[in-house]
Amino acid sequence: MTTAEQKQEPEFIQYKYPRTQHYWHALGYQTRAVEGFKQGKIMATKCSKCGRAMVPPRIVCPECYVEVTEWVDQGQRGKLVAAFKIGYPMYDRRTGESQVWDKPVVAVQMEGGALLDGWCSETDLDKLKPGLLLEAVWRPEEERIGAYDDVLHWKPVEK
């Protein structure tokens, strides 16, 4: 055996395998929010005590611990709270593969008060300042599945 061969890393066997978890998620009262997304509406529950609006909806306010019964359409516009770009290929649990995400992720505070995450059409982070007014751009109705990314992206409102 030559010195070069001796220096080679010994063989260690590894097995690579994808593991798919198939799940059934009972939406229950959240169905109303899912149906809302499909119709191009953002529906939130609103606490009668503290006024907090929640997407995805909660049935009990985590702060006040009271039952939440009021549903409020959050409108189509909201203010930017935070924005960031995912600068590395991040794992997508829908496919099991790492993926490059071009659009920035934004947190939007809706006119109705709810906070939600989404994609932004503006890729220049310097232009994404807190308080910027954003508007929802929806996917075509036939592509919607009842989820956050039925909003294709959030677009800054031209003044």
């Binding site: 998620h25 991040m90 794992y91 997508d92 989404g118 989820a147 956050y148 990314d149």
Partner: peptide
């Protein structure tokens, strides 16, 4: 595994969590 970095979104159900990719890194970014 590569699960840890994709699964740290925390707090949401599998359904709501799978839509916008969140990880410990994005949590600490905010």
């Amino acid at each position: 595994g590569q699960g840890a970095f994709g699964r740290g979104g925390g707090g949401l159900s599998e359904y709501w969590q799978s839509q916008i990719p969140m990880s410990p890194i994005t949590n600490f970014a905010r």
